[in-house]
């Protein structure tokens, strides 16, 4: 053990002493019990209980919403006055986070944001910026410190980076929702990977179940219900790739079907979800899951069949690389019956 390693051990131990424990076993047990009961009865919980369980376990329990392509509804005009200031920490890449404070004031027609950034533990400079836009409209702006602030005129369910967002910038972003005011705030810090720093574009699942973005784009979408959870897959013509609400979990291993047209993502280790798309023209699709895995199959408006498989457990090992799906059988465009067995690579 050399001096550097000794310092690391001592320093990490001291640093860890700053942490606190805010966990109560009864809360954990209660949330899991509620979720298990929901599965046994096969009925959705009331919104409040579902929200509590979903926040802890990651499930999203929503009442069914029709998914159509429409812009977000205009929010009611904000009453003049101050909104509650919001605080965001950005610890990405450092253990001494910056604290971003967003103060907001509405005069009924214009929403003005005052944004300041400072090192949370003191020292360093404070940077300030201003941003304003019309109440009830989406607006965004770039502020000092590679900060991007956006206001969405809806209390969204979830927000993500938009499809086709340039990869020349890495974004670390957070969002806050004010249901009473009917708006959402997204604050992002950009880390340029080259010389450019692009402005992020967002897509969100609105409070009415509609998928929208800041450009008024039209999305194709498919909603599947699996394990009592609504799962939405969306894509946009001309843009490679797709998105999901809730976001698809990290893919630890990718199934590579040796050049066939089936693509299956996820389903390994601590990932408990698998998503797949079948070749164009596939019909009479049967997806056979592994034990304790539920599957839902549906067809996007472009005619392509998708499936989602979700396990009701979390694998104990990262090295468990078995797919959640045992086999996929379908009749291809030529009328031939095909069975595909996913393998992990």
């Amino acid at each position: 053990m050399n001096a550097l390693e000794e310092k690391l051990r001592a320093g990490l131990t001291d640093l860890a002493e700053e942490s606190a424990v805010h966990v109560q076993p009864d809360d954990l047990i209660g949330s899991v019990t509620v979720l298990a009961r929901r599965r046994r009865t096969g009925r959705l919980l009331i919104a409040a209980a579902a929200a509590a369980a979903a926040g802890l376990i990651g499930w999203t329990a929503l009442s069914p919403h029709p998914v159509t392509v429409q812009p977000s509804p205009a929010a009611s005009p904000l009453a003049p006055g101050e909104l509650t200031p919001q605080f965001f920490r950005f610890p990405y890449q450092n253990l001494t986070p910056d604290l971003v404070t967003v103060a907001m004031h509405s005069d009924g027609s214009t929403l003005r944001l005052s944004v300041s950034t400072r090192p949370e533990y003191g020292g360093g400079d404070t940077t300030n910026g201003e941003l304003s836009g019309s109440v009830g409209s989406y607006f965004s702006g770039k502020l000092p410190g590679n900060l991007f602030v956006a206001v969405i005129p809806d209390a969204v369910e979830s927000v993500q980076l938009n499809l086709g967002t340039e990869n020349a910038t890495a974004y670390d972003y957070r969002s806050r929702v004010d249901k009473a005011a009917g708006l959402s705030l997204v604050v992002a810090r950009g880390y340029p990977l080259g010389t450019s720093l692009g402005t992020p574009s967002y897509v969100w699942l609105g409070s009415n179940g509609v998928i929208s973005d800041d450009k008024g784009s039209a999305f194709d979408s498919l909603t599947l219900t699996v394990n009592d959870t609504l799962f939405r897959i969306y894509q946009r013509a001309g843009i490679e790739g797709f998105g999901t609400f809730p976001a698809t979990r990290t893919v630890n291993h990718v199934v590579d079907p040796d050049g066939s047209e089936i693509a299956v993502w996820g389903g390994t280790g601590n990932t408990d979800q698998s998503l797949g798309r079948l070749p164009a023209g596939a019909r009479d699709v049967t997806v056979t899951p592994r034990k304790r895995v539920e599957v839902a199959v549906g067809t996007m408006s472009d005619g392509r069949t998708w499936f989602v498989a979700t396990a009701d457990y979390t694998s104990a090992s990262n090295l468990d690389i078995r797919p959640l799906v045992r086999s996929i059988s379908y009749t291809d465009a030529a009328g031939k019956r095909v069975t595909y067995v996913p393998t992990m690579k």
């Binding site: 001291d14 700053e18 949370e120 209390a155 369910e157 993500q160 972003y173 929702v177």
Partner: peptide, 23 residues
């Protein structure tokens, strides 16, 4: 992708001066 949160209270301050030199 953060989960949208309700408006939050001001975060607790941490006394950085109490930190050891090693930390």
């Amino acid at each position: 992708e953060p989960v949208p949160l309700e408006w939050s209270d001001r975060p607790d301050a941490v006394d950085a001066h109490a930190r050891s030199d090693d930390a």
